[in-house]
């Protein structure tokens, strides 16, 4: 039996990722990259909508995708902290996408073949998109890791900054067909291979920082502000 929290966790990861990438409009290093980042944001948003809709149905309290996206506070978001981290430069965007898509791909692949029919259908679609995201992030990690001295340093710094949050990808089995902890082996193999080819060092394990999730609070305040200012309105 799949729990609401399990589906919310997958959906919130995708929604928060889309929200971060959506802020990169007209800011990429090349126009082609503006198109690509918007595409990835749309994929993540599409998966988030399907997952939140399903979570609302499992919950049975009449909440649809918008009620779940716009009317929950930060304490009720189930996403891992990796995805909510700020993206001050393109290097962090790419590093985060690599770490996330190396998780989402095996996760959706496993879910596509697991027992929950609805999740299986959603994952069957999302896995193809994740494969593209991983490919895109891999190509950029190689170019930037093995590009110039500056790009190498920036990419290493990006992975170092994000590394304390990677454990969160695998934490807690909220009750669903695939235990995220079981995906760690596949994830490690992918990430170590790409970083190695990119001449980057895999950072040493670091504990996730404790403290308030101020980045998520700010992200949701921006995302939810207009919707919440007009209770009950249709858009």
């Amino acid at each position: 039996m799949t729990t609401v929290d399990y589906v919310l966790r997958l959906g919130d990861d995708a929604l928060v990722t889309a929200q971060r990438l959506g802020a990169w409009y007209a800011a990429g290093p090349e126009m082609e990259e503006d198109v690509a980042l918007a595409n990835i944001a749309l994929d993540q948003l599409g998966a988030a909508r399907l997952l939140l809709t399903y979570a609302g149905e499992l919950e049975g309290a009449g909440r649809d995708e918008d009620a779940l996206a716009y009317q929950r506070g930060p304490a009720d978001f189930r996403n891992c902290r990796l995805v909510e981290q700020p993206e001050p430069d393109f290097g962090v965007v790419i590093a985060k996408l690599l770490l996330l898509s190396a998780f989402q791909l095996p996760c959706y692949e496993a879910l596509a073949g697991a027992g929950d029919e609805r999740l299986s259908a959603i994952a069957g679609k999302a896995r193809k998109e994740s494969a593209y995201h991983l490919d895109h992030a891999t190509l950029w990690t190689l170019r930037l890791g093995d590009g110039t001295d500056e790009s190498h340093q920036r990419m290493q710094a990006s992975f170092d900054t994000l590394w304390p949050f990677v454990d969160g990808l695998f934490a807690g089995d909220d009750g669903g067909p695939v235990d995220p902890a079981e995906l760690r082996k596949a994830w490690t193999s992918t990430v170590e291979d790409v970083l190695g080819r990119a001449t980057l060092t895999v950072p040493a394990p670091v504990a996730e920082p404790t403290g308030e999730r101020t980045h998520l609070v700010e992200l949701l305040a921006e995302m939810q502000q207009l919707h919440r200012a007009h209770p009950g309105a249709r858009w």
């Binding site: 929604l15 889309a18 929200q19 959506g22 802020a23 409009y25 007209a26 126009m31 503006d34 198109v35 918007a38 595409n39 944001a41 749309l42 948003l45 599409g46 988030a48 909508r49 939140l52 995708e65 918008d66 996206a69 716009y70 921006e222 995302m223 502000q225 207009l226 919707h227 007009h230 309105a233 858009w235």
Partner: peptide, 28 residues
């Protein structure tokens, strides 16, 4: 892309967010 893109993060529903993202992508 800029005047409209600034509303991607604030779009009032997920459907509108998706439509606006796709539109700004079309402009690129």
């Amino acid at each position: 892309m800029q005047p409209e893109g600034s509303w991607i993060t604030r779009a009032p529903s997920l459907k509108r967010k998706a439509i606006l993202l796709a539109k700004v992508q079309d402009e690129a």
